[in-house]
């Protein structure tokens, strides 16, 4: 029975872990950015736009 090659396992594992960890992290960061930050900024800007409109009337 042929043995599976054991060379390069660590390197492959490291590259996979770094890529997966940072990739997942980046996905979570963008989820926070577009799911939390941008909506709150839009809400705030809408409030001040409405306030400015009320002041101008």
């Amino acid at each position: 029975m042929a043995l599976a090659p054991i060379t390069g396992i660590l390197r492959k594992r490291l590259i996979f872990d770094i890529s997966a960890g940072l990739g997942l992290g980046l996905a979570c960061s963008y989820a926070y950015w577009y799911g939390v930050h941008i909506p709150s900024v839009r809400k705030r800007d809408a409030f001040y736009a409405k306030l400015a409109q009320e002041k101008s009337q």
Binding site: A20, G21, L24, G25, C28, S29, Y32, W33, V36, H37
Partner: peptide, 17 residues
């Protein structure tokens, strides 16, 4: 919010590793 972006990236990356 800017810092939270990096914080989440680091947290998830380090937790995965």
């Amino acid at each position: 919010d800017d810092i939270m972006f990096y914080l989440i990236l680091i947290l998830v990356g380090v937790a995965w590793m």
